[in-house]
Computed example of a mutant assay.
Amino acid sequence: MKISITGASGFVGSNLSVFLKEKHADLLLLSLRSEDWRDQLDRSSDVVIHLAGKAHDTANAASDEEYYNVNTELTKDLFKEFQRSGIRDFFYFSSVKAVADTVTGILEEEHSPDPQTAYGKSKRLAEEYLLSQPLPPGKRLFIIRPCMIHGPGNKGNLNLLYKMVSRNMPWPLAAYENSRSFLSIDNLHFLVWQMIHKELPSGIYHFADDQPIPTNQLVQLIGAATGKKVKLWNIPQKLISFAAQSGDILPLPLNTERLKKLTESYVVSNARIKQVLGIANLPVTAEEGLLKTLKSFNK
């Protein structure tokens, strides 16, 4: 099987490439930064997995134009080449942020998109373009919306919590009960491989582990991975909120925006992809995946 991958130098791309090679796939690593990428594209591939993109810049240093040029326009260009080629499957890795920055309840594929950032909007515009285009017979289009992906070697948003626990700092927000969905890199590999080899309908699919994880449980998992005693402080929410509001004025480590990010829930459903694959559970539980990732930080 021949598979072309864009964005193979990133965390997901590098890990997925190793996984696919172990499955004896014939890989072409395509760099869209190259001006002659169209000439390099293997039009006889079976699958193209489009991972390349401008990641969300939490420092807000990137311009809106950068997001649209990379996430929207390059995706359009690649899909046009796919339409004219003999390639069967097009995987576009979008993001749950193309739908919502905050979630009330559980985020499903039918949720009405309302992205708030240039990153999310650029991803959503790419989705809209792909869905509006005619799909030649025999071809499939998969729009993948993963939640926060993690795995060995990639701390991502886990880094702040990890540092606090590993340095024996208390977690002061234990009074908040929130849950978040994560996606282990191992489950991502499993899902992509299954989708390639099974007769699935084109469409949008959310990728997430089976179980959302409460932040307090995540802190305890970090303690288990590091061998540190976890300190959970149940400070009244009113006091925390007052401190955060003070941080909006004074140079304090906590402000209302940071408090929101640390305590809000973001739960993503993976029911659709499991239904079409005919499986009850993914191979790696959320807790197993997180422990594997967290233990890798110690090395």
Rank of each mutant, 00 (worst) to 15 (best):
S9T: 15
G10M: 12
V12G: 04
N15W: 06
N15R: 14
L16W: 10
S17E: 09
L20E: 10
E22K: 15
L27S: 14
E35F: 06
E35S: 13
D36I: 01
W37P: 03
L41A: 07
L41W: 11
R43S: 11
R43C: 13
S44Y: 06
V47T: 12
I49P: 04
K54E: 15
A55C: 02
A55L: 08
S63A: 15
E66I: 08
Y67R: 06
V70K: 03
V70Q: 07
T75G: 13
L78R: 04
E81L: 14
F82V: 06
I87E: 04
D89E: 14
D89G: 04
D89L: 11
Y92C: 03
K97M: 12
V99Y: 07
T102C: 07
T102H: 11
T104L: 12
T104E: 15
I106L: 12
P113S: 10
Q116C: 08
A118M: 04
S122G: 05
K123A: 02
E128Y: 05
P134E: 13
L135E: 01
L135N: 00
P136H: 01
P136S: 02
P137I: 07
P137L: 05
L141D: 01
I143C: 04
I144H: 03
R145A: 05
G153L: 08
K155Y: 06
L158A: 04
L158W: 02
N159H: 07
L160M: 12
L161T: 00
K163G: 01
R167P: 00
P170Q: 02
L173V: 03
L173Q: 00
R180M: 09
F182K: 00
L183C: 02
I185D: 02
L188V: 02
L191G: 01
V192N: 01
V192F: 12
Q194N: 12
M195W: 02
I196A: 00
E199Y: 00
I204K: 04
Y205Q: 09
P212Q: 09
I213H: 08
T215F: 13
N216A: 10
V219A: 07
Q220S: 13
I222Y: 10
G223I: 05
A224Y: 09
G227K: 12
K228C: 12
W233H: 11
Q237D: 01
A244M: 06
Q245G: 08
I249L: 15
P251G: 02
L262P: 04
L262C: 05
T263R: 05
T263M: 11
S265C: 08
Y266M: 13
V268C: 11
V268H: 07
S269D: 04
R272Q: 15
K274C: 09
Q275K: 14
Q275S: 15
V276F: 00
A280I: 04
V284Q: 13
L290F: 10
T293Y: 03
T293Q: 03
S296W: 10
